[in-house]
Simulated assay, not measured.
Amino acid sequence: MPPVPVHPPADLSAFRAALLDWYDAHGRTLAWRASPGAASPEPYRVWLSEVMLQQTTTPHATPYFHSFTVRWPTVSDLAAAGDSDVMAAWAGLGYYARARNLLACARAVARDHGGVFPDTEAGLLALPGVGAYTAAAVAAIAFGRAANVVDGNVERVMSRLFAVETPLPAAKPELKRLAATLVAGDRPGDWAQALMDLGATVCRPGRPTCERCPLTRWCAGFRTGAPERYPLKTKKTERPHRTGTAWVLRDAAGRVALVRRPDKGLLGGMTGLPTSDWSVDAAVASPPVAADWQDAGAIEHVFTHFSLTLSVQTATGTGDFLWTHADEALVSLPTVFSKALERALAS
């Protein structure tokens, strides 16, 4: 097996030209992206897309991006929006702390920067909720800074290009260092997006389509004959399982009782069904009001750090809740609650 290179290709200019030429011909057309070589896109759109794409696929994030940019076309418009409106619009994208950080960042840009995003990586990093990856992505794509933009796709490309034997996640610093050796001042935004597109469409998880790759002449993983072996991964520990109860209370008009969850914690600040605690040893919990509760079955849901079984109980009654028509609740609730409500309505 060839040794791991610790430096960029000797013919770095040819290497970069090969990938940028490929990107010019094969780059993805995305709602938030300017065409290769075109003027940089609006920083607000780049930032919004990058936040939405964290832990979310491009097809799933795209309609949300369209909805947000129509409803709140500038960062100042978003900053002026109500918390509940933004959280409801975010429902279904998951990882709801992102929505809270989105609002905090938008309000900081509007309040402290006159509605204009800082144009440096350091300035972007100082904004609430903006981490190293997002700061680098916005700096490179929106402002043309020579920033090192490394997401999961880029990590996979680096691990194969340099045949990195360190397994993930321990390899992350090494992969970021290797990616930095390839960054230059020429077309930094296109470079970042070219690497991401290569990882998403050619250097894919599982078996890459190396016959379509413009970088095989430089790829140590390709030379091994088994590029799919990379990136190596540490064996994952088993995901914990939790249980709980969701109560679906409906009134005489068929509306559903909802509650606002605490600002901190999982699904913080979101509207949801009343539930018990989701603990490993969930005991029988007290329902939110006295009623003739009936068993409607159970639903399964998987979060990042644990899986969940929620038993669903239904009843008719009244109380001090946020009452919402069922069809509206189904499209606005986080996925776990939509599943529970669907189960209740089908029972």
Rank of each mutant, 00 (worst) to 15 (best):
A147K: 00
D151V: 01
N153G: 10
E155K: 15
E155A: 13
R156T: 08
V157E: 06
V157K: 00
S159R: 04
S159A: 15
L161P: 09
L161K: 03
F162L: 04
V164H: 01
T166D: 09
T166I: 13
P167Y: 06
L168T: 01
P169S: 11
A170L: 12
A170F: 09
K172S: 13
K172R: 15
P173L: 10
P173D: 12
E174D: 14
L175A: 04
L178C: 07
A179E: 12
A180Y: 06
A184F: 00
G185K: 04
D186N: 10
R187M: 04
G189W: 02
A192E: 03
Q193V: 01
Q193A: 07
A194Y: 07
A194Q: 02
L195W: 14
L195P: 01
L195D: 01
D197Y: 09
L198I: 04
A200S: 14
V202I: 15
C203E: 06
C203A: 06
R204N: 08
P205E: 07
P205Q: 11
G206W: 07
R207T: 15
E211N: 12
E211M: 08
E211R: 15
R212M: 10
P214T: 10
L215R: 04
W218Q: 07
W218R: 05
C219H: 04
A220N: 10
G221S: 07
G221I: 07
F222N: 09
R223V: 11
T224G: 05
T224H: 02
G225S: 08
A226I: 12
A226Y: 12
A226M: 11
E228R: 10
E228K: 06
E228T: 00
Y230H: 11
K233D: 00
T234L: 14
T234I: 12
T234M: 13
T234C: 09
T237S: 15
E238I: 14
R239W: 00
R239Q: 14
P240N: 04
P240V: 06
H241R: 14
R242P: 01
T243W: 08
T245R: 12
W247F: 13
L249S: 05
D251Q: 10
D251W: 10
D251I: 12
A252Y: 03
G254H: 05
R255K: 13
V256K: 08
A257K: 08
A257T: 08
L258E: 00
R261M: 13
R261I: 05
